[in-house]
Structures are given as structure tokens and as C-alpha cells.
């Protein structure tokens, strides 16, 4: 535990020091790793309980586009726009999550319903091209350095924001672990009827996890948009983004707090490394290797993934054995 605390305190400290030394290119990478790490962590918050959502592209898209549109058309500050986008995403998660959990739409059905949600948001953004710029994307109206507009040409500001956001994400993760929620979810992952029979409000707990996960994803998307100052439906919403989120979190390991961040570190480094090594000669090389890596991860680490994904499919397949260390720790 103490080693963990040292890591928790020391890690950010080192990162902070790095921030003042890093040249802009590396700072850009660090910001991306932190922001994506935050989003992957948010996904894993529900993924680890067996709700594999392919709809997080939708939440991210809503979170990114709402503040940008409000700012461009009405001059509404992102300080208002971002909470609104986050709230809308949470609402969307509620609207999809409630019937899914009520009707026991689980396993790959849940994945396919949320996949459809990804497409609905992506295509809606493209369809509203008069407002959103469609597939061409959208640039936020730039005003230079401004706290009001949440625009900082200096990358160091966004580095600090991303770092805080990422730490916040980890704090939420820990808070969920400490609170009653985690045990409740573990209980209902084990046996839903039994959990309900001892007075656990199954529905409320599931929805809580889903809504928190969606809201944080939207928040990550909003900050990502503010940082890049350019939104494209393909890069902040849709199936491709949803799958990117799912896979990075899985490769990194979705049941440990730092796993999704490791996933972000790994995938972004791989991407950049290959891009630098091969220049543009081999477009797609990174994802080719990434795809192979994913298949290998899922095939050869079955116990790790099953251990966590298993509960979702309770009733439809053989229930995997408990992971003793996990349960004892909880």
C-alpha cells in the first residue's frame, strides 16, 4: 500500500516536472496520453463490471460538439457549454442504459445496441452539416489566450488541465472502489437475483456506473476539443472511436486503475513511433500491428479478460471462476 502511495504521489510529480522540460511535440503527446487515458479509464469504469459499451464514441461526440457549437453560434462560454454537454451525455446514457438493464439486454446485444448509438450520433453530426460542418469538421472560433473561452495557445495550460482531469478520473475510480458501489456491483455480477433479494437496488447501481462513465467520457471529449480547436465527427464520435476506446482499455488492462492509462501510453507511443520510423510510407502500419496485438491479447490472456467480462454473460455461458485476489482485496 505504501509503495502504491509513493507511486501515486511520485508519478504526477515526475510528470509535472517533465511538463516544464518537454518540447512542444512531446507535450502534445503527453496531453494526448493523459486525455485518452482519462477517457479509457472512464470506459473501464463500466467495462470492468461486464458492461462492454461500444457507445462511448457517442458520449464523447456529444461532449465535444455541444460546447463547441454553443461557443461558435451563441458565444456561450465553455464553462457553461461543457457541463451542458456532459449532462446531455449522461441523459443519453440514462435513456439507453435504463431499458437495456431493465430488459436484460446484455452481452453482445448490449454491445450492438450501444454500437448503433455510436452510429446515430456520428450520422446526426454529419447530417446536420449546415451547423456542424459535417465530415469537414468544425473549428472553434479562436480568440487567443482566454480563460473565458478556455483557449490557451500555450500547451502547458492544457497539460496542467489534462493532468488534473486524469488525476480526477483516477480519484473517481478509487472512490467507486471504496464506496458500497463496488461491492454491490460485484455482488450482482455474481448473482443478480441474490443481490436483489438482500435489498440491493440493482438497477440504480448499474445506472450509476453507466452515467458516471458516460459523463466522464463526455468531459474528456470536451477538453480534447478545446485543446485541438478542431472537431471532426470521425475523430470524436462513431464506431471507430468507440472501438479505439474499448481496445486500448482492454490492452492496458481494464480492471486495474492504471491499466487504461497504460493502454493509452502504449497505443499512442506505438502510433507515433511507427509514424516517425516510417514517415508516411506506411499509412496503416500502426493499426496493422495494433490489430494483431489486440487479437493476441484477447486470445492469450483469456483468464484476465474473462475474469472481468464473465459476469456480464452470466446465464448465457459457463460462469468463470472468481478471481480470488480481486475478491479478497475488496
Amino acid at each position: 500500500m505504501s509503495a502504491r502511495n509513493i507511486l501515486l504521489a511520485g508519478g504526477p510529480a515526475i510528470l509535472l516536472i517533465l511538463s516544464f522540460l518537454a518540447p512542444p511535440y512531446f507535450m502534445h503527446l503527453l496531453i494526448q496520453i493523459l486525455l485518452w487515458g482519462f477517457i479509457y479509464t472512464a470506459w473501464a469504469m463500466m467495462g470492468r463490471f461486464g458492461f462492454v459499451s461500444l457507445g462511448h464514441g457517442a458520449f464523447m461526440g456529444v461532449g465535444a460538439y455541444v460546447p463547441a457549437l454553443l461557443w461558435n453560434y451563441y458565444g456561450v462560454t465553455p464553462w457553461l457549454g461543457i457541463p451542458l454537454g456532459v449532462a446531455l451525455s449522461a441523459l443519453l446514457a440514462l435513456v439507453i442504459g435504463y431499458p437495456c438493464f431493465r430488459l436484460r439486454v446484455v452481452g453482445h446485444y448490449f454491445a450492438l445496441v450501444t454500437l448503433a448509438l455510436s452510429q446515430v450520433v456520428l450520422l446526426s453530426i454529419v447530417a446536420a452539416r449546415d451547423i456542424t460542418g459535417g465530415s469537414l469538421g468544425l473549428s472553434q472560433r479562436a480568440v487567443g489566450f482566454s480563460w473565458y473561452a478556455l483557449q490557451f495557445p500555450d500547451k502547458r495550460y492544457f497539460y496542467a488541465i489534462s493532468l488534473l482531469l486524469w488525476l480526477g478520473g483516477l480519484a473517481v475510480w478509487r472512490w467507486m472502489n471504496r464506496g458500497i458501489g463496488r461491492e454491490v456491483l460485484d455482488a450482482l455480477a455474481e448473482d443478480e437475483e441474490a443481490a436483489a433479494s438482500i435489498g440491493i437496488d440493482v438497477m440504480r447501481e448499474k445506472l450509476r456506473v453507466t452515467v458516471i462513465s458516460a459523463a466522464l467520457t463526455a468531459l474528456g471529449g470536451a477538453i480534447f476539443g478545446q485543446y485541438l480547436m478542431y472537431l471532426n465527427p470521425e475523430t470524436v464520435s462513431g464506431i471507430a472511436v468507440s472501438l479505439q476506446i474499448v481496445f486500448a482499455a482492454i490492452v492496458g488492462g481494464m480492471y486495474s486503475m492504471l491499466g487504461p492509462t497504460v493502454g493509452a501510453l502504449l497505443t499512442i507511443s506505438l502510433n507515433e513511433g511507427l509514424r516517425v520510423a516510417f514517415a508516411t510510407n506506411f499509412i496503416g502500419a500502426a493499426n496493422t500491428i495494433y490489430g494483431i496485438l489486440l487479437m493476441l491479447c484477447i486470445i492469450f490472456m483469456p483468464r484476465g479478460i474473462v475474469g472481468l467480462l464473465g459476469p456480464m454473460t452470466a446465464g448465457t455461458s459457463i460462469r468463470p471462476a472468481r478471481k480470488p485476489d480481486e475478491k479478497l482485496a475488496a
Binding site: 462492454v52 453482445h108 481496445f247 493499426n287 490489430g291 474473462v306 467480462l309 455461458s317
Partner: peptide, 16 residues
């Protein structure tokens, strides 16, 4: 293993 794992493994194939 759980059906969702097979979905995800072929998702890796999709990327590939």
C-alpha cells in the same frame, strides 16, 4: 470464453 471476447477478438481482426 464469454461471447463478448469473440466479438472483441474479431474487432482486432477488423482493425488489422
Amino acid at each position: 470464453s464469454a461471447p463478448i471476447n469473440q466479438l472483441l477478438a474479431t474487432g482486432g481482426l477488423l482493425f488489422f
